[in-house]
Amino acid sequence: MVAPPDNDVLWARSLNCSLGGTPALSGVSIGIREGEILAVTGPRGSGKTTLLRCLSGQLTPDQGEVWFNSSPVHTMAPLQRERLRREKFGWIAPEPALVPELTAWENAALPLLLRGSSQQAAKTTAMEWLERLDIGMCARKRPHALLQAQRQRISLARALVSTPCVLYADEPTATLHRAEGAQFLRTLTTAARSHRITVLLATSDPEIATLADRAVALLDGRRVNSTGGGANGAEGVTACSLSV
């Protein structure tokens, strides 16, 4: 086993993964630097979600290695991987996937509550994030009473509330209209830059990929090429750091 480069927070080598016999990833290698926003692009069915699930420890690859901060994710026990997801990672799905019986602030506070913080502290932090994302007025409503864009923002608040090391966003704007989607991504990127959160953004839209520092393209489960994103790498990071 080769130890990963020091400046990569997340690193994967020659991942092979099949879902129910169908090959989803074949020989994908990827390295993500700390604080960078990396877009994973490709059409539907190209293996973006599978790659994100492998990197976040939700799936174990058939072959290959995944390292997070010099610890091997691919050899971890399921309980350790859960703990890693709970403590270090955030996840935004295409659908908001909120818990329907909890109110907006309870949904947003859930990661903190699961980590064992007190109810009052979790509520304060969750309410702060909801206010920052302009959905403070929906805090006491249930998800079914809200609009899709508001629900997706609650899902963003839930992912950011614990200030994770790595935030996985799997096509977060797929179910939103263009204006709402653009605002969502702006909020996501500024929040990530100001809190130095590493973001993996899976998207099938090349326009969205230009918001990222770097883009990696997948096609039929293989990497095809990688291109620089719209922002100029590390130089742009501090300049974009707004307070969100």
């Binding site: 703990r83 996937a97 859930l110 699961l114």
Partner: peptide, 12 residues
Amino acid sequence: STTTALLALGAP
């Protein structure tokens, strides 16, 4: 669906 969402969050 609720259970899946909770497990994705890392709930044991």
